Computed example of a mutant assay.
Amino acid sequence: MGVTCQILLNPTENGVFRAGGLVTGTLKYFIDKPTQYKRITMSLVGRGKCIWTDHASRSDTITTTTSTNSSTVYHMNNEDYTNQMMSINLGKDEFISGAFEYPFQFQLPINIPPSFRDQICTIEYKLTVSFVKANFMIAQREFEVEIPVTSYVVSFSMEPLKLSLDKKLSFKLKNNININGQISKTCINPGDSTQLAIEVNNESSVEVSVRTELIFCLTYISNLNRRLYREEVIRNTTTKTAVAAKSVSNLICVVPTYQHLCSVQHSRVMIGEYKVRLKIEVPWPHRDASLDIPVVIGPKMPDYITTVPVAY
């Protein structure tokens, strides 16, 4: 059997570890027969990586050519957020066996992104224990556990934030739809909501609808600064209200968030942004008009902490 190992994490609020906080617990391992080890180490590593493909005739990224003479272009990037290691004290030239326990403690950096995973990008934090026997250079056994991390967010928007959106259906006078108002919060704790208090002045001769929804915008960044953009509507965050022709309506639109949502900042491999989309929906053949209001979701960075901006 050799060696067995358990990495026991001390419980935290909501089961996640916060940037700038401590990761503590107990390392337990059992060695069934006397064995001489060169070293036993425990490390905390945080790493982000992304990779995606597209097709082009030429590129300065990694390519492979298919039988149809089209090239698959690979865009990729990676970044380290923390790499800390502690060593277990071993007696020189000592053969050890039996059960052992060691408390451990690591501190997460303050300016790191939260844990994240999708088909293109992974941001993860892991504790790894390595056992290297005497006369060997690499570990014979490794044990690891992933730790979920949430991070602080930085917001530079004022609260409340004023907003305005106009839509002209034609060049005729008094054929406009105007929205004026404000959004109550632009930095939102997960699970809380923000509100749009707006006045809709529909001077046109048609009924229109006012829609609000929360959008998650993802920007993946390669090591050559190539970018891939995707967005999705967060479920159950949409409101829609009809506004009659030649009328004025005062609306309160509530945009909810959820506990698992968090903006992704402090990373060079991806940006995860949230936006509240305000839209005027008009009948065909007219085109809708929309306004995206940037918001950040997550615990706000304390004022006494100096943040280092990430250059994208």
Rank of each mutant, 00 (worst) to 15 (best):
K162Y: 11
Q259V: 06
K49D: 13
E142Y: 00
T212E: 14
S43H: 03
C262V: 07
T66A: 12
I112L: 09
T306A: 09
W52V: 02
S247E: 13
H260W: 13
L165I: 06
G191Q: 08
N83E: 11
Y81C: 04
V45A: 00
G20M: 12
L261T: 00
I31P: 05
R227P: 04
L291W: 04
T307Y: 15
P109E: 07
P34E: 15
V308N: 14
T64F: 02
V276C: 12
N201I: 15
K240A: 08
G98P: 09
F136Q: 02
F30W: 04
V255C: 04
S70C: 07
N111L: 09
R117D: 03
E281M: 15
T24D: 13
T24V: 09
N78P: 01
R58C: 05
C262G: 14
Y229V: 00
T64N: 04
P299I: 12
Q6F: 06
E199G: 09
T257R: 09
I179N: 11
R287A: 07
A134S: 14
D80H: 06
T186G: 00
C50M: 13
V132I: 11
I215R: 15
D80M: 11
E213R: 11
I40P: 00
K38R: 14
P302W: 04
T64I: 12
I177Y: 05
R277A: 05
I198H: 09
Y102N: 15
K172R: 10
V243A: 12
R226T: 04
P283G: 12
S157A: 15
S59Q: 05
I293L: 09
T66L: 14
Y74M: 11
K168A: 05
I252H: 05
K38G: 05
V310H: 05
E199N: 14
T68S: 12
R141F: 10
N69H: 10
I293W: 01
